[in-house]
Design a protein around this nucleic acid. Sequence first.
DNA 1: CAGTGGTCTAGACCACAAG
DNA 2: TTGTGGTCTAGACCACTGG
Lengths: 235, 235
Amino acid sequence: MTRSSDEIRNWQAVQAEVLRRLHTRQWRPGELIPNEAELAREFGCARATVNRALRALAEAGLLDRRRKAGTRVALHPVRKATLDISIVRIEVEGRGQSYDYRLLSRDELPAPEPLRVRLKLGDGAPLLHLRALHLADGNGHMVEDRWINAAAVPAIRDADLSRISANEWLVMHASFSEGDIGFSAASASADEARLLGCDAGAALFVIDRTTWNRDLAITSARLAFAPGYRMQTVI
Amino acid sequence: MTRSSDEIRNWQAVQAEVLRRLHTRQWRPGELIPNEAELAREFGCARATVNRALRALAEAGLLDRRRKAGTRVALHPVRKATLDISIVRIEVEGRGQSYDYRLLSRDELPAPEPLRVRLKLGDGAPLLHLRALHLADGNGHMVEDRWINAAAVPAIRDADLSRISANEWLVMHASFSEGDIGFSAASASADEARLLGCDAGAALFVIDRTTWNRDLAITSARLAFAPGYRMQTVI
DNA sequence: CAGTGGTCTAGACCACAAG
DNA sequence: TTGTGGTCTAGACCACTGG
């Protein structure tokens, strides 16, 4: 079957056609597909257009591309799920719930040993330690336990962290170049249970997050969400 | 300061320079940055190169771009964390552990009501129901509870699912166009506790996943991981 | 060595939305 | 209306890597 009238000229259309061939198994896992020049000829578009489409599919994990070796259908499609890590307030308000925030404690302490190692801080570096409760519709939604490297963001000492959450303040006044984030489950401590209005030992969804700005640690936080919390996305 | 000799000619360099200006707050949140043509002139490269760099940063959530309105530094940098959703076996072996798999049960049942609604299936559609245990270094690592729409993948009835996991079989023999995935925490049931070698009620990390191929539901699975499991990525 | 993807360029036109 | 990003093109050169 020749294609003459219905040419595929934009990269979204190219991508859709390639996806069709993948889903219908016309191109099977591990198989080598035609190179960019050939596809461009078949589709009646420029090679750059094919490149754009295939590059996006490779980034999504559906294709494996290597110079000289060509493009193959991924054998184990490691699908990339992208999670939007937004500010808690925005997330809560986005669900139509009212948001509230309470600062529970604020201290300035020398960094505990394990944290000092993880943040690669010098001896006895002073850290700001915050504990806060985030509420949704008046109920405990998330408990935040955060350490901030005061040396990296001196202005935080003058910030009014009883009205605005530390995370939100940091987003507006500092910035980071890299970070790591981990997701896990943990049992609620007695303290967390009280704050979140659940039983001690209940399963909580936990996010651990540390951010850096060019080798300078900014902050490290543990966010424990009330039971029932679910982080969702599409693939 | 004029740039004459040290021009920025490739998109990675452009991106790095833009990132530098963001991190040093030379361009602040909410601020309008120069348009593509101006930046191309400043950097001494083509507009397409600037476009490639800025588009990537916008996809990462650092910039907001709108036709005619121009490009602004994102006010609330909704950072996108991309998680690699790979096959359990690959993940376990990637950590240098030995992997094993046991099929616990296999039935063919009419779909329970809530699942039938979620998968948009017809009345009394028959589903394959599987329960399996995945082991890492001989210890319970994850309990899988999966429903498969046999009508969508008839060949699954003849598959030997006692040697290869259903997920792995599906990856190789079926494929999906869309899916949703959710992460949460749950307390271990007595059964799960026995399989995973933990106490009943322990906090488990849970992944729920449903996949489709053009409006045709393929499979829905619940994966409950042993305590201590952590899903990690960088931002 | 040679074939493949990766990228840059200059120019062009288009789609969208702010004013 | 008009300025902005979004995209396509044809051609070119480069970088990597398989054979």
